[in-house]
Design a protein around this nucleic acid. Structure first.
Length: 117
RNA sequence: CUGGGAGAUUAAUGCAAUCGCUGGGCAGCAAUGCCGAGAGGAAAGUCCGGGCUCCAUAGAGCAAGGUGGUCGAUAACGUCGACCGGUCGUAAGGCUAGGGAAAGUGCAACAGAAAGCAAACCGCUAAGCACCAGCUUAGUAAGGGUGAAACGGUGGGGUAAGAGCCCACCAGAACGCAGGGUGACUUGCGUUGCUAGGUAAACCCCACCUGGAGCAAGAACAAACAGAACGCCAUCUUGAUGAGUAGCCUAGCUGCCCAUCAAGUGGGAAGCGGCUCGCGGCCUCGUGCGUUCGGGUUGUUCGCUUGACGCCGCGGGCAACUGCGGUGCUAGAUAAAUGAUUGCAGCGCUUCGGCGAACAGAACCCGGCUUAUCAAUCUCCCAGGUCA
RNA sequence: AGUCCUGUGGCCCAGCGGCGAAGGCAACUGGUUUACACCCAGUCGAUCGACGGUUCGAGUCCGUCCAGGACUA
Protein backbone atom coordinates (compact mmCIF):
# COMPACT_ATOMS: atom_id res chain seq x y z
CA UNK A 1 0.00 0.00 0.00
CA UNK A 2 1.46 3.32 -1.05
CA UNK A 3 1.61 5.74 1.88
CA UNK A 4 1.43 8.86 -0.29
CA UNK A 5 -1.88 7.88 -1.76
CA UNK A 6 -4.54 10.60 -1.59
CA UNK A 7 -7.47 9.41 0.45
CA UNK A 8 -9.09 12.74 1.13
CA UNK A 9 -12.69 13.38 0.24
CA UNK A 10 -13.32 17.02 -0.71
CA UNK A 11 -16.65 18.54 -1.58
CA UNK A 12 -15.91 18.67 -5.31
CA UNK A 13 -16.06 14.87 -5.30
CA UNK A 14 -19.75 14.77 -4.51
CA UNK A 15 -22.87 14.90 -6.60
CA UNK A 16 -24.93 17.73 -5.18
CA UNK A 17 -27.36 19.17 -7.74
CA UNK A 18 -30.76 17.78 -8.45
CA UNK A 19 -30.14 17.84 -12.21
CA UNK A 20 -26.97 15.76 -11.83
CA UNK A 21 -28.95 13.14 -9.93
CA UNK A 22 -31.63 13.28 -12.60
CA UNK A 23 -29.08 12.77 -15.35
CA UNK A 24 -27.58 9.78 -13.59
CA UNK A 25 -30.93 8.10 -12.98
CA UNK A 26 -32.14 8.83 -16.53
CA UNK A 27 -28.99 7.36 -18.06
CA UNK A 28 -30.32 3.97 -17.01
CA UNK A 29 -26.90 2.49 -16.32
CA UNK A 30 -26.96 0.33 -13.19
CA UNK A 31 -24.81 -2.29 -11.57
CA UNK A 32 -25.70 -4.08 -8.35
CA UNK A 33 -25.02 -6.98 -6.01
CA UNK A 34 -26.59 -8.16 -2.75
CA UNK A 35 -25.51 -5.09 -0.78
CA UNK A 36 -25.43 -2.00 -3.03
CA UNK A 37 -26.97 -0.60 -6.19
CA UNK A 38 -24.87 1.88 -8.20
CA UNK A 39 -26.25 4.11 -10.93
CA UNK A 40 -23.59 5.82 -13.05
CA UNK A 41 -22.93 7.98 -16.09
CA UNK A 42 -20.12 10.10 -17.59
CA UNK A 43 -19.78 13.63 -16.18
CA UNK A 44 -17.07 15.17 -18.51
CA UNK A 45 -15.00 16.19 -15.45
CA UNK A 46 -11.41 15.24 -14.61
CA UNK A 47 -12.55 13.41 -11.48
CA UNK A 48 -15.20 10.97 -10.32
CA UNK A 49 -18.03 12.09 -8.05
CA UNK A 50 -20.14 10.26 -5.47
CA UNK A 51 -23.85 10.78 -4.76
CA UNK A 52 -25.92 9.08 -2.11
CA UNK A 53 -29.58 8.14 -2.23
CA UNK A 54 -30.91 6.52 0.92
CA UNK A 55 -34.68 6.43 1.21
CA UNK A 56 -36.77 6.36 4.36
CA UNK A 57 -37.69 2.75 3.67
CA UNK A 58 -34.15 1.73 4.60
CA UNK A 59 -34.63 2.50 8.28
CA UNK A 60 -34.62 5.28 10.83
CA UNK A 61 -32.21 8.16 10.85
CA UNK A 62 -29.19 6.51 12.57
CA UNK A 63 -29.39 3.57 10.17
CA UNK A 64 -29.57 5.83 7.13
CA UNK A 65 -26.64 7.90 8.40
CA UNK A 66 -24.62 4.74 8.92
CA UNK A 67 -25.20 3.68 5.30
CA UNK A 68 -24.06 7.05 4.00
CA UNK A 69 -20.95 7.06 6.16
CA UNK A 70 -19.98 3.57 5.12
CA UNK A 71 -20.50 4.37 1.43
CA UNK A 72 -18.42 7.53 1.71
CA UNK A 73 -15.68 5.64 3.53
CA UNK A 74 -15.57 2.97 0.83
CA UNK A 75 -15.46 5.62 -1.90
CA UNK A 76 -12.66 7.47 -0.10
CA UNK A 77 -10.50 4.38 0.27
CA UNK A 78 -10.96 3.22 -3.33
CA UNK A 79 -10.89 6.65 -4.98
CA UNK A 80 -7.55 6.22 -6.72
CA UNK A 81 -8.55 2.88 -8.26
CA UNK A 82 -11.86 4.09 -9.68
CA UNK A 83 -12.44 4.93 -13.34
CA UNK A 84 -12.11 8.69 -13.94
CA UNK A 85 -14.89 10.99 -15.11
CA UNK A 86 -18.02 9.34 -13.77
CA UNK A 87 -20.90 10.31 -11.52
CA UNK A 88 -21.84 7.44 -9.23
CA UNK A 89 -25.08 7.35 -7.24
CA UNK A 90 -25.06 4.70 -4.57
CA UNK A 91 -28.05 3.32 -2.76
CA UNK A 92 -28.41 0.38 -0.38
CA UNK A 93 -30.19 -2.72 -1.58
CA UNK A 94 -33.45 -3.66 0.09
CA UNK A 95 -32.89 -6.03 2.99
CA UNK A 96 -29.11 -5.60 3.16
CA UNK A 97 -27.47 -4.84 6.51
CA UNK A 98 -25.05 -1.93 6.94
CA UNK A 99 -21.75 -3.71 7.64
CA UNK A 100 -18.53 -1.85 6.85
CA UNK A 101 -16.69 -4.87 5.42
CA UNK A 102 -19.57 -5.90 3.16
CA UNK A 103 -20.02 -2.37 1.86
CA UNK A 104 -16.32 -2.01 1.03
CA UNK A 105 -16.19 -5.36 -0.80
CA UNK A 106 -19.37 -4.61 -2.68
CA UNK A 107 -18.15 -1.19 -3.73
CA UNK A 108 -14.85 -2.61 -5.04
CA UNK A 109 -16.64 -5.33 -7.02
CA UNK A 110 -19.13 -2.91 -8.57
CA UNK A 111 -16.48 -0.40 -9.54
CA UNK A 112 -14.71 -3.16 -11.47
CA UNK A 113 -17.92 -3.89 -13.31
CA UNK A 114 -18.23 -0.23 -14.25
CA UNK A 115 -14.69 -0.19 -15.54
CA UNK A 116 -15.43 -3.12 -17.85
CA UNK A 117 -18.29 -1.31 -19.55
C1' C B 1 -34.63 -9.83 55.33
C1' U B 2 -39.08 -9.95 52.06
C1' G B 3 -42.63 -7.14 49.40
C1' G B 4 -44.11 -2.34 47.83
C1' G B 5 -44.08 3.23 46.86
C1' A B 6 -41.84 8.17 45.43
C1' G B 7 -37.89 10.84 43.16
C1' A B 8 -33.04 12.08 41.06
C1' U B 9 -28.72 11.04 38.07
C1' U B 10 -25.59 8.62 34.37
C1' A B 11 -25.95 7.32 28.77
C1' A B 12 -21.76 4.66 21.52
C1' U B 13 -17.90 1.20 28.51
C1' G B 14 -12.89 3.63 28.94
C1' C B 15 -7.85 4.78 26.97
C1' A B 16 -4.40 5.09 22.83
C1' A B 17 -2.77 5.09 17.51
C1' U B 18 -3.62 5.74 12.07
C1' C B 19 -6.70 7.56 7.90
C1' G B 20 -10.79 11.01 7.01
C1' C B 21 -15.28 14.84 7.55
C1' U B 22 -17.64 19.96 9.29
C1' G B 23 -17.05 24.68 10.79
C1' G B 24 -13.59 28.29 13.95
C1' G B 25 -8.61 30.64 15.14
C1' C B 26 -3.41 31.45 13.57
C1' A B 27 0.36 31.34 9.54
C1' G B 28 0.81 31.55 4.11
C1' C B 29 0.18 34.94 -2.57
C1' A B 30 -1.71 30.06 -2.94
C1' A B 31 -1.54 24.81 -2.47
C1' U B 32 -1.60 23.70 2.43
C1' G B 33 0.08 23.27 7.60
C1' C B 34 -0.63 23.78 13.03
C1' C B 35 -4.03 24.43 17.32
C1' G B 36 -8.23 23.48 20.06
C1' A B 37 -14.10 22.19 19.20
C1' G B 38 -17.96 18.92 17.12
C1' A B 39 -25.66 15.02 18.74
C1' G B 40 -29.89 13.90 22.88
C1' G B 41 -32.54 12.72 27.40
C1' A B 42 -35.64 12.14 24.68
C1' A B 43 -32.39 15.74 19.39
C1' A B 44 -38.59 12.05 18.20
C1' G B 45 -44.13 12.92 18.02
C1' U B 46 -45.61 18.09 16.60
C1' C B 47 -49.80 17.98 21.52
C1' C B 48 -49.45 23.10 23.98
C1' G B 49 -46.85 27.84 25.31
C1' G B 50 -43.29 31.85 24.24
C1' G B 51 -39.09 34.61 21.84
C1' C B 52 -37.90 36.18 16.74
C1' U B 53 -39.58 37.63 11.52
C1' C B 54 -43.17 39.22 7.89
C1' C B 55 -48.34 40.68 6.95
C1' A B 56 -52.76 42.99 9.03
C1' U B 57 -54.46 46.45 12.75
C1' A B 58 -58.07 53.50 15.88
C1' G B 59 -60.88 51.53 20.10
C1' A B 60 -64.49 48.16 21.57
C1' G B 61 -67.69 44.24 20.49
C1' C B 62 -69.64 39.83 17.75
C1' A B 63 -68.34 35.17 15.66
C1' A B 64 -64.92 30.98 16.10
C1' G B 65 -61.60 28.21 19.15
C1' G B 66 -59.49 27.05 23.89
C1' U B 67 -59.04 26.66 29.36
C1' G B 68 -62.03 25.38 33.96
C1' G B 69 -61.31 23.56 42.47
C1' U B 70 -58.15 27.51 45.26
C1' C B 71 -53.70 30.20 46.04
C1' G B 72 -49.11 30.82 43.94
C1' A B 73 -44.70 30.22 40.20
C1' U B 74 -43.52 31.94 35.24
C1' A B 75 -41.88 35.48 29.41
C1' A B 76 -46.14 32.28 28.74
C1' C B 77 -48.88 27.69 28.97
C1' G B 78 -53.53 22.99 28.46
C1' U B 79 -47.10 23.20 32.35
C1' C B 80 -45.16 23.18 37.44
C1' G B 81 -45.65 23.67 43.10
C1' A B 82 -48.46 23.75 47.61
C1' C B 83 -53.22 23.14 49.46
C1' C B 84 -58.80 21.77 49.27
C1' G B 85 -62.70 18.20 47.66
C1' G B 86 -63.72 13.21 45.41
C1' U B 87 -61.96 8.24 44.71
C1' C B 88 -58.60 3.58 45.06
C1' G B 89 -55.03 1.35 48.51
C1' U B 90 -53.64 -1.79 55.35
C1' A B 91 -49.96 2.10 54.45
C1' A B 92 -46.14 4.95 51.94
C1' G B 93 -48.80 6.85 48.04
C1' G B 94 -51.74 6.66 43.10
C1' C B 95 -55.65 8.75 39.95
C1' U B 96 -58.80 13.03 39.33
C1' A B 97 -61.41 18.18 32.10
C1' G B 98 -62.88 19.01 39.69
C1' G B 99 -67.33 25.90 37.57
C1' G B 100 -72.94 26.08 36.74
C1' A B 101 -78.39 20.94 36.05
C1' A B 102 -83.51 26.21 41.34
C1' A B 103 -81.44 30.81 33.44
C1' G B 104 -83.28 28.10 29.34
C1' U B 105 -83.47 24.11 25.36
C1' G B 106 -82.53 19.05 24.34
C1' C B 107 -81.37 13.57 25.07
C1' A B 108 -82.30 8.64 27.62
C1' A B 109 -82.67 2.86 22.41
C1' C B 110 -84.76 -1.84 24.59
C1' A B 111 -87.52 -3.07 28.90
C1' G B 112 -91.17 -0.99 32.06
C1' A B 113 -97.60 1.26 34.32
C1' A B 114 -94.47 5.42 34.48
C1' A B 115 -87.87 8.18 32.24
C1' G B 116 -89.41 13.83 35.32
C1' C B 117 -93.87 20.06 36.98
C1' A B 118 -95.15 13.36 38.36
C1' A B 119 -98.20 9.25 37.39
C1' A B 120 -100.46 4.31 39.02
C1' C B 121 -99.67 -1.97 35.78
C1' C B 122 -99.87 -5.97 39.43
C1' G B 123 -101.22 -4.89 44.38
C1' C B 124 -103.41 -3.15 49.37
C1' U B 125 -108.00 -0.88 51.68
C1' A B 126 -113.12 0.97 51.97
C1' A B 127 -118.04 1.60 49.82
C1' G B 128 -121.56 -0.10 46.10
C1' C B 129 -123.21 -4.05 42.62
C1' A B 130 -123.03 -9.42 41.86
C1' C B 131 -124.84 -16.58 43.29
C1' C B 132 -119.61 -16.87 41.98
C1' A B 133 -115.89 -15.23 38.62
C1' G B 134 -115.41 -10.34 39.07
C1' C B 135 -116.94 -5.11 37.94
C1' U B 136 -117.49 0.33 39.29
C1' U B 137 -116.10 4.52 42.38
C1' A B 138 -112.81 6.51 45.98
C1' G B 139 -108.23 6.27 48.86
C1' U B 140 -103.01 4.71 48.93
C1' A B 141 -97.74 4.26 47.24
C1' A B 142 -95.56 0.03 51.98
C1' G B 143 -94.66 -4.55 48.67
C1' G B 144 -93.84 -6.82 43.34
C1' G B 145 -91.75 -6.65 38.56
C1' U B 146 -88.45 -3.51 34.50
C1' G B 147 -84.16 -0.76 33.93
C1' A B 148 -77.81 2.10 33.97
C1' A B 149 -81.25 5.22 36.59
C1' A B 150 -87.98 4.99 39.55
C1' C B 151 -88.54 11.25 44.49
C1' G B 152 -83.87 8.92 51.60
C1' G B 153 -82.51 4.23 55.20
C1' U B 154 -83.71 1.33 59.90
C1' G B 155 -87.11 0.78 63.91
C1' G B 156 -91.57 2.30 66.32
C1' G B 157 -96.28 4.85 66.53
C1' G B 158 -100.41 5.66 63.59
C1' U B 159 -104.29 3.99 59.93
C1' A B 160 -109.72 1.05 56.66
C1' A B 161 -105.05 0.38 54.05
C1' G B 162 -100.98 3.45 53.83
C1' A B 163 -97.46 7.49 53.44
C1' G B 164 -91.94 12.19 57.14
C1' C B 165 -98.38 11.83 58.54
C1' C B 166 -95.71 11.81 63.62
C1' C B 167 -91.28 10.26 66.72
C1' A B 168 -86.04 8.34 67.62
C1' C B 169 -81.39 7.33 65.36
C1' C B 170 -78.50 7.54 60.73
C1' A B 171 -77.28 9.96 55.86
C1' G B 172 -77.79 14.24 52.87
C1' A B 173 -79.52 19.35 51.55
C1' A B 174 -80.79 24.61 52.22
C1' C B 175 -80.59 28.74 55.48
C1' G B 176 -78.75 31.39 59.91
C1' C B 177 -75.03 32.26 63.81
C1' A B 178 -70.08 31.54 65.77
C1' G B 179 -64.72 29.84 65.15
C1' G B 180 -60.32 28.73 61.63
C1' G B 181 -58.10 29.83 56.67
C1' U B 182 -55.64 35.05 51.62
C1' G B 183 -58.81 31.26 49.36
C1' A B 184 -60.92 26.51 47.61
C1' C B 185 -63.00 24.82 51.99
C1' U B 186 -63.67 23.29 56.91
C1' U B 187 -65.39 22.70 62.45
C1' G B 188 -69.40 23.43 65.96
C1' C B 189 -74.45 24.88 67.19
C1' G B 190 -79.43 25.95 65.72
C1' U B 191 -83.77 26.17 62.37
C1' U B 192 -86.44 24.11 58.24
C1' G B 193 -87.76 19.40 56.82
C1' C B 194 -87.14 15.22 52.71
C1' U B 195 -87.92 19.78 49.27
C1' A B 196 -84.44 20.44 43.61
C1' G B 197 -82.59 12.37 39.73
C1' G B 198 -78.60 11.78 35.38
C1' U B 199 -76.16 14.04 31.18
C1' A B 200 -72.70 20.46 29.90
C1' A B 201 -65.54 15.51 26.54
C1' A B 202 -75.06 17.69 24.21
C1' C B 203 -76.47 22.94 22.88
C1' C B 204 -75.73 26.44 26.45
C1' C B 205 -74.63 30.09 30.86
C1' C B 206 -70.49 32.21 33.78
C1' A B 207 -65.23 33.61 34.36
C1' C B 208 -60.58 34.03 31.90
C1' C B 209 -57.35 33.63 27.31
C1' U B 210 -56.41 33.98 21.81
C1' G B 211 -55.13 38.97 15.14
C1' G B 212 -52.86 35.64 10.97
C1' A B 213 -48.82 33.00 9.17
C1' G B 214 -44.36 30.69 9.91
C1' C B 215 -36.66 30.45 9.57
C1' A B 216 -38.97 26.49 3.27
C1' A B 217 -40.44 33.24 8.23
C1' G B 218 -37.81 37.19 6.31
C1' A B 219 -33.62 40.54 4.31
C1' A B 220 -29.61 41.69 0.80
C1' C B 221 -26.79 40.77 -3.69
C1' A B 222 -26.20 38.43 -8.49
C1' A B 223 -27.15 35.69 -13.39
C1' A B 224 -29.23 34.93 -18.04
C1' C B 225 -34.08 34.17 -20.38
C1' A B 226 -39.41 35.23 -20.89
C1' G B 227 -43.65 38.65 -19.87
C1' A B 228 -46.36 43.47 -18.96
C1' A B 229 -46.89 48.88 -19.23
C1' C B 230 -45.27 53.42 -21.53
C1' G B 231 -42.56 55.99 -25.56
C1' C B 232 -40.56 55.53 -30.71
C1' C B 233 -41.58 52.25 -34.85
C1' A B 234 -44.29 48.60 -37.45
C1' U B 235 -48.89 45.64 -39.71
C1' C B 236 -51.24 41.52 -39.55
C1' U B 237 -53.04 40.16 -34.58
C1' U B 238 -55.26 36.92 -30.76
C1' G B 239 -56.75 32.12 -28.75
C1' A B 240 -56.84 26.52 -28.77
C1' U B 241 -54.59 21.73 -30.16
C1' G B 242 -50.55 18.78 -32.19
C1' A B 243 -45.59 17.84 -33.86
C1' G B 244 -40.69 20.00 -34.16
C1' U B 245 -36.88 23.24 -32.43
C1' A B 246 -34.27 26.89 -29.41
C1' G B 247 -32.74 29.92 -24.81
C1' C B 248 -31.41 30.38 -19.34
C1' C B 249 -26.51 25.98 -15.16
C1' U B 250 -32.72 23.44 -15.13
C1' A B 251 -37.87 17.21 -15.12
C1' G B 252 -39.45 24.37 -14.35
C1' C B 253 -40.64 28.69 -17.18
C1' U B 254 -40.79 30.74 -21.93
C1' G B 255 -39.92 31.99 -27.25
C1' C B 256 -40.08 30.68 -32.45
C1' C B 257 -41.12 27.84 -37.30
C1' C B 258 -44.87 24.62 -39.44
C1' A B 259 -49.91 22.33 -39.70
C1' U B 260 -55.19 22.42 -38.37
C1' C B 261 -59.40 25.03 -36.24
C1' A B 262 -61.87 29.59 -34.44
C1' A B 263 -62.33 34.98 -33.97
C1' G B 264 -61.07 39.89 -35.33
C1' U B 265 -58.37 43.52 -38.37
C1' G B 266 -56.14 45.27 -42.89
C1' G B 267 -55.48 45.96 -48.54
C1' G B 268 -50.79 49.74 -46.38
C1' A B 269 -44.13 48.63 -48.83
C1' A B 270 -42.13 52.44 -45.95
C1' G B 271 -39.47 52.06 -41.60
C1' C B 272 -36.64 49.24 -37.80
C1' G B 273 -32.48 45.56 -37.64
C1' G B 274 -27.39 43.22 -39.60
C1' C B 275 -22.60 44.19 -42.55
C1' U B 276 -20.08 49.34 -43.15
C1' C B 277 -16.33 55.23 -40.03
C1' G B 278 -20.36 57.45 -43.01
C1' C B 279 -23.15 57.81 -47.73
C1' G B 280 -24.23 54.46 -51.35
C1' G B 281 -24.83 49.42 -51.95
C1' C B 282 -25.90 44.44 -50.25
C1' C B 283 -28.57 40.88 -46.82
C1' U B 284 -33.30 40.11 -44.53
C1' C B 285 -39.04 40.54 -43.38
C1' G B 286 -37.06 37.65 -38.88
C1' U B 287 -37.39 37.04 -31.74
C1' G B 288 -37.22 45.80 -33.56
C1' C B 289 -35.01 49.74 -29.85
C1' G B 290 -35.17 52.38 -24.98
C1' U B 291 -37.07 53.07 -19.82
C1' U B 292 -39.69 51.16 -15.69
C1' C B 293 -42.05 47.15 -13.40
C1' G B 294 -41.62 42.20 -12.87
C1' G B 295 -42.47 36.02 -13.55
C1' G B 296 -40.87 31.12 -13.05
C1' U B 297 -35.92 28.89 -12.53
C1' U B 298 -31.11 29.13 -10.05
C1' G B 299 -26.81 30.61 -7.00
C1' U B 300 -24.38 33.28 -2.84
C1' U B 301 -24.51 35.96 1.87
C1' C B 302 -27.17 37.33 6.26
C1' G B 303 -30.97 35.43 9.67
C1' C B 304 -27.38 31.36 12.73
C1' U B 305 -26.21 30.86 17.65
C1' U B 306 -24.30 34.71 24.07
C1' G B 307 -29.02 32.54 25.71
C1' A B 308 -36.00 33.76 29.85
C1' C B 309 -27.83 30.00 29.05
C1' G B 310 -24.76 26.50 32.26
C1' C B 311 -21.91 25.93 36.95
C1' C B 312 -20.54 27.67 42.03
C1' G B 313 -21.52 30.60 46.53
C1' C B 314 -24.73 33.59 49.74
C1' G B 315 -29.86 35.15 50.74
C1' G B 316 -35.75 34.74 50.26
C1' G B 317 -39.74 30.92 49.85
C1' C B 318 -42.96 24.56 52.60
C1' A B 319 -42.21 24.23 47.27
C1' A B 320 -42.50 25.46 42.02
C1' C B 321 -39.21 29.40 41.63
C1' U B 322 -36.33 33.66 42.49
C1' G B 323 -32.58 38.15 44.04
C1' C B 324 -27.34 39.34 44.28
C1' G B 325 -22.18 38.16 43.35
C1' G B 326 -18.44 35.27 40.87
C1' U B 327 -17.16 32.27 36.78
C1' G B 328 -17.52 29.53 31.88
C1' C B 329 -18.48 29.77 26.27
C1' U B 330 -20.52 24.40 25.29
C1' A B 331 -22.41 21.94 17.19
C1' G B 332 -23.99 25.47 13.47
C1' A B 333 -24.28 21.71 8.80
C1' U B 334 -27.36 22.70 3.88
C1' A B 335 -27.70 15.81 -1.20
C1' A B 336 -26.53 18.13 5.06
C1' A B 337 -20.11 17.03 9.33
C1' U B 338 -19.62 14.21 14.34
C1' G B 339 -16.99 8.30 10.90
C1' A B 340 -13.77 3.83 9.78
C1' U B 341 -9.85 0.45 11.18
C1' U B 342 -6.52 -1.59 14.87
C1' G B 343 -4.60 -2.55 19.87
C1' C B 344 -5.14 -2.82 25.34
C1' A B 345 -8.33 -3.03 29.68
C1' G B 346 -13.34 -3.79 31.99
C1' C B 347 -18.78 -5.98 31.91
C1' G B 348 -22.57 -10.04 30.27
C1' C B 349 -23.19 -14.78 27.60
C1' U B 350 -20.19 -18.79 25.73
C1' U B 351 -20.02 -24.85 22.33
C1' C B 352 -13.62 -21.00 24.59
C1' G B 353 -13.60 -20.03 18.05
C1' G B 354 -16.05 -15.74 19.49
C1' C B 355 -20.67 -12.91 20.11
C1' G B 356 -23.25 -8.77 22.44
C1' A B 357 -23.88 -3.62 24.74
C1' A B 358 -30.86 0.17 24.40
C1' C B 359 -34.12 3.92 22.30
C1' A B 360 -32.38 6.68 18.82
C1' G B 361 -29.27 11.63 14.92
C1' A B 362 -29.11 18.67 15.75
C1' A B 363 -31.56 21.80 11.01
C1' C B 364 -33.87 29.28 14.21
C1' C B 365 -33.91 29.06 19.64
C1' C B 366 -36.14 28.22 24.44
C1' G B 367 -40.21 26.27 28.58
C1' G B 368 -43.32 21.98 29.09
C1' C B 369 -46.29 17.54 27.82
C1' U B 370 -46.51 12.73 25.46
C1' U B 371 -44.29 8.45 23.48
C1' A B 372 -39.68 4.92 22.81
C1' U B 373 -35.69 2.85 25.86
C1' C B 374 -30.28 -1.24 27.46
C1' A B 375 -27.79 -1.25 31.81
C1' A B 376 -26.97 0.64 36.32
C1' U B 377 -26.20 4.02 40.67
C1' C B 378 -28.05 7.01 44.65
C1' U B 379 -31.68 9.25 48.18
C1' C B 380 -36.20 9.10 50.96
C1' C B 381 -40.63 6.53 52.63
C1' C B 382 -44.42 2.37 53.90
C1' A B 383 -46.20 -2.72 55.41
C1' G B 384 -44.91 -7.50 57.42
C1' G B 385 -41.28 -10.68 59.74
C1' U B 386 -36.67 -11.64 62.64
C1' C B 387 -32.64 -10.31 66.08
C1' A B 388 -30.55 -7.03 69.96
C1' A C 1 -37.62 21.31 9.20
C1' G C 2 -42.61 23.14 9.14
C1' U C 3 -48.15 23.00 7.89
C1' C C 4 -52.27 19.80 7.08
C1' C C 5 -55.54 15.54 5.72
C1' U C 6 -57.34 10.41 5.89
C1' G C 7 -58.03 5.36 8.38
C1' U C 8 -65.30 1.18 8.38
C1' G C 9 -65.77 -6.70 4.88
C1' G C 10 -60.96 -8.45 -0.65
C1' C C 11 -62.05 -3.13 -3.29
C1' C C 12 -65.09 1.71 -3.40
C1' C C 13 -67.71 4.04 0.22
C1' A C 14 -72.54 5.64 3.73
C1' G C 15 -73.39 6.04 8.73
C1' C C 16 -78.56 11.95 14.56
C1' G C 17 -74.55 8.76 20.87
C1' G C 18 -79.27 3.66 20.99
C1' C C 19 -81.95 -3.19 17.47
C1' G C 20 -77.53 -8.14 15.16
C1' A C 21 -73.24 -1.41 11.32
C1' A C 22 -76.49 0.44 5.34
C1' G C 23 -75.19 0.10 0.01
C1' G C 24 -72.43 -1.05 -4.66
C1' C C 25 -68.49 -4.12 -6.95
C1' A C 26 -66.04 -8.81 -6.14
C1' A C 27 -66.52 -14.06 -4.19
C1' C C 28 -69.77 -18.39 -3.33
C1' U C 29 -74.61 -21.25 -3.88
C1' G C 30 -79.16 -22.05 -6.45
C1' G C 31 -82.46 -20.79 -10.63
C1' U C 32 -82.57 -19.56 -15.97
C1' U C 33 -79.53 -21.55 -20.70
C1' U C 34 -77.41 -27.09 -24.75
C1' A C 35 -73.35 -24.00 -22.53
C1' C C 36 -71.23 -19.06 -21.20
C1' A C 37 -72.65 -14.03 -20.23
C1' C C 38 -76.73 -10.87 -18.77
C1' C C 39 -80.75 -11.40 -15.39
C1' C C 40 -83.45 -13.31 -10.70
C1' A C 41 -83.12 -15.25 -5.55
C1' G C 42 -80.00 -16.15 -1.55
C1' U C 43 -75.27 -16.76 1.28
C1' C C 44 -70.43 -15.49 3.10
C1' G C 45 -67.34 -11.72 4.74
C1' A C 46 -66.18 -6.19 10.01
C1' U C 47 -62.62 -6.57 17.61
C1' C C 48 -65.12 0.23 12.73
C1' G C 49 -56.19 1.58 12.81
C1' A C 50 -54.56 0.87 18.47
C1' C C 51 -55.00 2.24 23.66
C1' G C 52 -57.23 5.14 27.52
C1' G C 53 -61.30 8.54 29.17
C1' U C 54 -66.61 10.92 29.27
C1' U C 55 -71.48 8.43 29.21
C1' C C 56 -76.35 3.71 31.42
C1' G C 57 -74.42 2.99 26.35
C1' A C 58 -68.94 5.20 21.71
C1' G C 59 -67.85 3.53 14.69
C1' U C 60 -69.70 8.53 16.30
C1' C C 61 -67.57 12.91 21.66
C1' C C 62 -62.38 13.99 24.13
C1' G C 63 -57.08 12.73 24.71
C1' U C 64 -52.56 9.99 23.38
C1' C C 65 -50.13 6.88 20.01
C1' C C 66 -49.63 3.97 15.04
C1' A C 67 -49.93 3.75 9.72
C1' G C 68 -50.66 6.03 4.97
C1' G C 69 -50.93 10.45 2.00
C1' A C 70 -50.63 15.78 0.48
C1' C C 71 -48.52 20.70 0.54
C1' U C 72 -44.59 24.69 1.68
C1' A C 73 -38.05 27.16 -1.36
Amino acid sequence: MTPQRDERFPKQARVVNQRDFDRVFRSGLVVSDGTLVVHFCRNNLPHTRLGLSVSKRVGNSPIRNLWKRLAREAFRKLQADLPVGFDLVVRPRKGASPDSLLVAQSFARLSHKIQKR
